[in-house]
Each structure stands twice: as C-alpha cells, then as structure tokens.
C-alpha cells in the first residue's frame, strides 16, 4: 500500500462526512427559511446565504470526490477504441495532465486566498468573513491534487481503468 493511496483514502472519508453535513445543512436552511417566513412570518435573513455557501463547499469537495470515484463527465470514445497498450499510456497521460493542472491551480488558489483583500470581505447577509466560503476552492483543489496523484501513480504501476 502506497502512502499516497492511504492519504487519498483518508481524505475521501473526511469528504464523505463533510458532504453529508453540507447537504443536510443546505436542505435544513432552505426548509427552515420557508417555515419561518410562512408560519412564523419572520423570515430568516441567513437561510439563503447558508444554503449557497453549503452548495459551494459541496461543489468543490464533491468535485474532488468525482475524481476519486472516476465519476466525472468524460469523452471516452477515442480511448475505448485503442489497443490495450496505448490505452494504458493515454490513461496515464490523462491522469498526469489532470495532476499537473490541479497542482498548478492549487498554487494559483493559494496565492489568491492569501491576498490581503480576501480578509476584509464579509458576506452581505450574515457578515461572515468571506474566507470561509472562499476556502472551499483551496480545499477542493488540495484534495483533487492528492486524489489525482494517487490515480496517476496507480496507473503507472499496473491497474488500468
């Protein structure tokens, strides 16, 4: 077992847990939003914002999960028609491209998140520091980087998917 696979699996477990929490939060905040507005006639000013921030976190965390589970939308017609050997090469190459991109993007997002103007921003309804939803992009690309490194390394070793 490679260390990178272990790390990728641990991250995936955390992601599953987070996904459950985020999806439930999104559902509850919109549902309570309706209940409070209609039955108690006192609309919750924070419900839409909580739901949208949950969606954003869900998208980046979930986006990384789709890499791990190979569920992302792809065009595979070309690769499917290749011979066994060239197929393995192309798939390794594809994982490498994704890995390279996620590393590069992780670097860009790190530069972005530490820029001074990030810290002064607050959300419009809750006055929440915007770094809380923004950080989802960084976290998502970090996890994507680990997952795609694991996939790339595995594709070099033996199994082709």
């Amino acid at each position: 077992m490679l260390i990178i696979n272990g790390l990728s699996n641990v991250i995936f477990k955390v992601e599953k847990l987070l996904a459950g929490i985020l999806l439930s939060t999104m559902f509850l905040s919109l549902f309570l939003g309706v209940v409070y507005r209609y039955y108690f006639n006192s609309p919750l000013f924070w419900s839409d914002e909580v739901a949208i921030f949950s969606l954003i976190w869900l998208s980046f965390i979930g986006g990384s999960m789709t890499i791990k589970t190979k569920r992302s939308a792809v065009v595979s017609v070309f690769v499917d028609n290749l011979g066994e050997k060239s197929k393995r090469v192309v798939i390794s190459l594809s994982y490498f491209i994704v890995l390279f991109f996620t590393v590069y993007f992780f670097y860009i997002t790190m530069k972005w998140i530490v820029s001074p103007s990030i810290l002064v921003q607050r959300s419009s309804a809750m006055q929440l520091p915007m770094i809380i939803p923004y950080f989802s992009v960084v976290a998502g690309f970090f996890a994507m980087m680990i997952h795609s490194l694991a996939l790339f390394v595995n594709s070099l070793r033996n199994d082709v998917t």
């Binding site: 507005r37 006639n41 609309p43 000013f45 839409d48 914002e49 419009s124």
Partner: peptide, 25 residues
C-alpha cells in the same frame, strides 16, 4: 408583518426589521 424583499445589506436589513415588516432577502 408584511414580507418585503430587501437587498441583503446590514443597514438596510436593520431599518426594515425596525419597521415591523418581515424583510425577505
């Protein structure tokens, strides 16, 4: 008790809460 759509900015929100309306973003 009237549900009024307002822009989700704190000062605007504060005014509308004080009026007794239900400010709705």
């Amino acid at each position: 008790g009237k549900r009024i759509r307002v822009i989700g900015s704190p000062a605007i929100q504060d005014f509308w809460v004080e009026t007794g309306a239900s400010p709705t973003p």
